[in-house]
């Protein structure tokens, strides 16, 4: 871990300014992914802006009948919130499917959106990796790719987005609120937040330099039955091979997003229109452009079968 200076920010805008004022500054909140990466010198900030004192840790009801979740609300608190459990069950289910109790106590809503891939080549600094060291090549495409992206990747990178929470937020049409160093705020739909790798896999999201996530808002509840089926070898404390976040209505319509299979939460509103026609119909569209490796081609049938499991359970 490289040496760094450290400050505690006094307000969201001040935090954004502090991050902008120095080269190589980063915000730190829960730290559960950033410190992991700093120890390996995959992340090498020289200045950390601690945002934990900024408040931003409450969940409030919005005028639109939804929820505004502070960026510093812990995964545990968000999953346990009664309103979330009642109206956004897919979000609770997704969060508690991830990591461990200890990590969820520390991980924050904002930080969780930003967690970086678990591609083993990204994690080994001796290996070429376009995401970690642009231009060095992708070791994964012809390497150990079992856990990696079957769709949405590029010739430059097939890393997956590893999180669960954001997959649920994707089916809930969440929006991400930010503040920049000038105090300007903006709202980014979660569909636009995470970037596909293309030729620049090092660019993972829509945030600009110094821009700080302050909240995530959820629209009013859309009802339906909520599911999050996470498939993994180990029964807990493991990243998804494939996960399915779904909301299923009584008439068979609904929403679905996939985790563990792409560089971002994977949803296509036209594909989910096929939900009444079953999992195969959905996946024919949703995964039409899949380009799996030999090692991860199982994810395509697995995604379909996992959605089928969810639809079967929804029929009850």
């Amino acid at each position: 871990m490289r040496a760094f200076s450290y400050e505690r920010a006094s307000s969201p805008q001040a935090a954004a300014q502090a991050a902008m004022a120095r080269d190589n500054a980063k915000f730190i909140a829960g730290g559960t992914n950033l410190l992991d990466l700093m120890k390996l010198e995959i992340e090498t900030p020289t200045h950390l802006v601690d945002v934990n004192g900024l408040g931003l840790d409450t969940i409030e009801e919005t005028d639109a009948g939804g929820l505004r979740i502070g960026a510093l609300v812990s995964n545990t608190a968000l999953a346990a919130d009664e309103r979330v459990r009642r109206d956004y069950g897919v979000l609770t289910r997704a969060i508690v499917a991830g990591a461990s109790g200890q990590l969820r106590n520390k991980a924050t809503t904002g930080g969780n959106l930003l967690q970086r891939t678990r591609c083993p080549y990204f994690y080994d600094t001796n290996m070429p990796c376009n995401k970690r060291a642009p231009g060095t090549g992708c070791s994964a495409i012809e390497g150990f790719s079992r856990s990696l992206a079957a769709i949405g990747g590029s010739d430059f990178c097939i890393a997956t987005y590893p999180g669960d929470m954001a997959v649920a937020m994707r089916v809930l049409d969440a929006e991400i609120e930010t503040v920049d160093p000038d105090g300007e705020t903006r709202t980014i739909p979660i569909a636009d937040f995470h970037k596909l790798p293309g030729e620049t896999p090092e660019v993972e999201n829509e945030l600009r330099p110094g821009e700080l996530i302050t909240a995530v808002t959820l629209p009013a509840s859309v009802g339906g039955r909520h599911f999050y089926h996470k498939v993994r070898d180990r029964s807990s404390y493991a990243f998804a091979l494939v996960s399915v976040a779904a909301i299923v209505n009584e008439d068979g319509t609904g929403r679905v997003a996939l985790g563990g299979i792409a560089p971002k939460p994977w949803r296509d509103e036209t594909a989910e229109a096929e939900m009444p026609n079953g999992a195969s119909a959905v996946m024919r569209r949703l995964l039409a452009d899949a380009k799996p490796t030999e090692e991860n081609q199982f994810k395509v049938p697995l995604a379909e079968r996992t959605l089928a499991a969810v639809l079967s359970e929804a029929k009850g």
Partner: peptide
């Protein structure tokens, strides 16, 4: 680069 993006050199 921005928060959440690639590593930068210290």
């Amino acid at each position: 680069v921005a928060y959440g993006q690639a590593n930068v050199e210290a």
